[in-house]
Design a protein around this nucleic acid. Structure first.
Lengths: 176, 176
DNA sequence: CGGAGATACTTAACATGTTAAATGAATGCG
DNA sequence: CGCATTCATTTAACATGTTAAGTATCTCCG
């Protein structure tokens, strides 16, 4: 029932492998992507059970939250806001609409665009999830420290900005 | 051909939606999970094209890197090292084995366990990817700053530790 | 006006994330 | 020894990530 708790009881046989240690690289587990991944997972692990009880995935919750604060949006802008790729968003909107949590209508001016908004049921669902969610966030803030949290987010933003437009489209070397 | 380049030109019509703004919450886009997600994406966006050229996904690359530094490991420990869930790892190992990038054998002492190691082909592939990968990492470090990078990783580690064992298994309320 | 090109979104196809269940093998205990 | 339990790994099922292709619509220019 508890976690699997690391088992260091294999300190005996090294069990040599066919071909390893040929390519030197930074310590894998200390790379920036891994640090970010683990940190995010540590955070999300706190929220998932609560969301699950309400039949929501992390991404569905993101979409509802985004919609709750902006009246109505076009799909493309929603994708940017909720940080989802078009295809993912497309599928999720289809499902959320089937569950009557959102509503959509095509824009009058441009038949290509569809405008999405949260429904009454969606608002009700949010109201039932938000308190727990906020409590969890508050606990995380308490444990880590509000000040440090703000600092961390500031650094994350800086990181983002410092990489903006690096691999966008202007990299040389189109060989291949 | 270029990317879609953010378009902030919609500051005009609010376009009222059926039911929004009922549930007040923190600004969605500034939540910790979103910050972490965006930061990680900004980083990974740099690596994916290069990996893709070599026919590797991010996770496959993680596994090869993990294997390259530890001779041989059991699947469970590899999952912990590469930070992958069992099912994902299972599938990926099946594919990597079919591509002859890894090798596996069942442990003599315990028929349930299987021991995985990188193959010669795997090492060769790593050798062909590692330089580019290191160069990208170096550029990221240069842009963001080595000092700040270290600070950031320290904070991420702290965050992880401060949340360790929160939603692990000792939460009350087994009501279902 | 009409068709080439751009846009907004959706589908398709494949890989992974996530949880639950299944399978096969070891362990402990009566 | 026999069998319930535990353990390591895999399979299943569903949801999302990711890239490419498809569809419908709009725009613009000749």
């Amino acid at each position: 029932m508890t976690k699997k708790s690391a088992d260091p009881a294999n300190g005996g046989a090294p069990a040599a492998g066919p071909a390893a240690r040929q390519v030197p690289m930074r310590d894998f587990s200390r790379s920036l992507p891994m640090s970010l991944l683990r940190a995010r997972e540590a955070v999300m692990r706190q929220f998932r059970p609560s969301l699950r009880e309400h039949g929501l995935t992390e991404q569905q919750w993101r979409i509802l939250r985004a919609l709750a604060s902006i009246e109505a949006v076009e799909v493309t802008e929603l994708a940017r806001t909720a940080f989802l790729l078009g295809p993912s968003l497309s599928r999720i909107l289809r499902d959320l609409e089937a569950r009557n949590l959102i509503e959509r209508k095509t824009a009058k001016a441009d038949q290509r665009r569809s405008v999405v908004s949260i429904s009454k049921d969606g608002v009700k669902l949010m109201a039932s999830v938000a308190p727990t969610s906020e409590a969890i966030y508050a606990e995380i803030t308490r444990r880590f420290g509000a000040r440090k949290l703000a600092e961390l987010q500031e650094m994350l933003g800086e990181l983002e900005r410092s990489l903006a437009g690096l691999g966008a489209s202007e990299e040389a070397s189109p060989e291949e």
